[in-house]
Amino acid sequence: MIQPTEEDIALAGEYVLGLLDVAGNAMAEARIATDAAFAKEVEAWRVRLQPMLAGDVDPPDRLWDSIEKSIPPVAIQDLGLGKLAFWRTLTGMSVSAAVILGILFLQKPGIESAPTPAKPLIAALSNENRTTSLTASYDEISGRLIVLPVSLDTGKLYPELWIIPADGKARSLGIVDKSSPTAVIIPNDMREFLVSGGTLAITPERAGGAPDGKATGPVIASGKIARL
């Protein structure tokens, strides 16, 4: 087996230790996505360093209840496995949106074996100053919405995603990750809202999401859904 270069060994170690800047991180994640040997070295660093984090301590029982309340109710989906693997390939790493979209366009033709579905629905979410932005891509077959934060800062709060259909009422799609791709499985009764012309929006909310399904924070990013 070919040994990784010292350059790659150090880079993989820096990545796992969290020492790279934003650009360095994006570069490393692009390498992980495309270079199996480098990805293997990254995983090897995780395994090497993990003993530092060892030590089991039982958390208090109440913690599970608050975690369970924090996740949106979702129906169990039976997704096509090929489709799922495809999305996993794309979202297995927090690559910057540009890199992900690049891979999407490069790889998509070769991957689809099932009948080609209609073009995906996408949305670009931003605020007026364009200082906050996310992209979202929705696959109607799997009911899976992939949300990619490009620039998103909610401070100590959590970004909650909303769908606002034609009736103007916002419905929560749950909390998304601030810095990494989030795969949201849209519950069956909400899928009718994920259509061209609907609006996706983000508000900062406390841990667990907005109480009673009503947003408390200001809309910090929004965008209309459109067919790619």
């Binding site: 975690i67 924090s70 899976r144 749950g174 909390i175 795969a183 949201v184």
Partner: peptide
């Protein structure tokens, strides 16, 4: 919460 949101990427 992050694990729930990102489990599909595992």
């Amino acid at each position: 919460i992050t694990i729930w949101n990102r489990a599909a990427t595992f």
